[in-house]
Design a protein around this nucleic acid. Structure first.
Lengths: 227, 227
DNA sequence: ATTGTTTGTCAACACTTGTACACTGAAATG
DNA sequence: CATTTCAGTGTACAAGTGTTGACAAACAAT
């Protein structure tokens, strides 16, 4: 539902390339170009709060006043972006469930798969990671909610898969997954502003995160509930 | 050197409250009010890239053109803020060294002390945490550099204090400290946008981070270099 | 006492910004 | 077919933006 639109390149309003008919579809389409425009501008080193309504419509190839047909104000657009990002996060878990746990060297392959996914959806991840701790309050809170949901789902998955060998209280599981998720979001932020085509740096980065996660899971296997 | 100025309240240019004489001192003083103005605006839910030059000078009680007497452009001001923030970070370590390790329940009391320090310097921490992953590239990189330095110093301290019992390679130590620092920066971000006067929420938050750190150190004591 | 320096001020510039209002034309509805 | 609905357009305006240049007055150096 979130990705019928695949990163269209500007000037969309009159394109009509595919065979689309209904008015509703058209509306969703330009709404999408507005969201994409915002994401693209942010990916060029800008924060959400610095974006202007006019700037976005310009990038989207639409007249400024058209913005109001889709969002009351910038905050509403921001929240829509958070929702999209949340969907992208959830999709990651769903795909992971479907693919099953990697056969050997679980952590390293998981990190690799994850980082590939981050690169594939770098706009969403850039937004989430970038706005998670700074900028607009409402958006920050919305992101926090999404990340919490993601963490809880992950905790549930780990419990069902019995990945840690012995059972743990939900509180402990959530605390561990919270640590894992924070670490992975840091990792996303790091690779996303790695200078491109630097396999050396990238390898070091991956290595560092693999070891951090190994340490976390090592701690998790030794964890005593009583603490 | 960074804190001769203690969060002055606007309209500073003509104040002349204390006995200050030299021209250089006066310059540093208004330079400080500009930096403070920027920090204050950001603490009200704005990102750095969204700040305007005029806005800052207005908040500082100074005419817009005066800005150029101190900074070539906004980026230069941002880097100055990063430097200040870096100093605040280092001061934390210095004070920790002087105070020594807390007698009992080391992790819990450390977290408490740390969070008190974060609150005391909430403007600097808000800036660092908020801009660490989003917004302007140069500033993000500068922050990363400061955080890395901080991490290295921390690793050195831990090694010298033999806090982990047995010796570890510098690489492992840095990786562990990196995890600790990331976690503490997340913690800083979390308490700083906790609604005020909510001791319940705060206690839960502190508890969560205490347990995350316990897990990390538990992992660290079991860590095998060979990994 | 007479210079030169330099921090902060003032006025003005060419632009950009968010938003209001009336309008068009094609899809939706009857 | 006639009518209504509404996404997108065009124009307009007040308010804010970064930056320039000339100027005032307090300090510094001679």
């Amino acid at each position: 539902m979130a990705d019928s639109r695949k990163s269209r390149s500007a000037t969309a309003a009159q394109a009509n390339e595919g065979t689309l008919i209904t008015r509703g579809e058209r509306k969703q389409r330009t709404r999408g170009t507005l969201l994409d425009a915002a994401l693209k501008l942010m990916s060029e080193g800008r924060s959400f709060t610095s974006l202007g309504l006019r700037e976005i419509t310009r990038e989207a190839g639409v007249v400024p006043t058209s913005f109001y047909r889709h969002f009351r104000d910038m905050d509403e657009l921001g929240l829509a972006l958070v929702e999209e990002g949340g969907l992208t996060l959830r999709r990651l878990l769903r795909e992971a469930r479907k693919a099953g746990v990697p056969a050997q060297d679980i952590i390293r392959s998981s990190v690799r798969i994850y980082l590939a996914y981050v690169r594939e959806h770098h706009l969403h991840f850039g937004f989430i990671v970038g706005e998670r701790m700074g900028g607009s309050g409402p958006i920050r809170r919305a992101i926090r909610t999404e990340v919490t949901h993601f963490t809880n789902e992950m905790a549930q998955d780990i419990q069902q898969l019995k990945l840690l060998g012995r059972p743990l209280s939900t509180a402990s599981l959530q605390m561990i997954c919270g640590l894992v998720v924070s670490t992975m979001l840091n990792a996303a932020g790091d690779i996303l502003d790695l200078p491109p085509k630097q396999p050396q740096l990238e390898a070091e980065l991956v290595d560092g995160y693999v070891r951090q996660l190994r340490l976390i899971f090592l701690g998790a296997t030794q964890w005593k509930e009583s603490s």
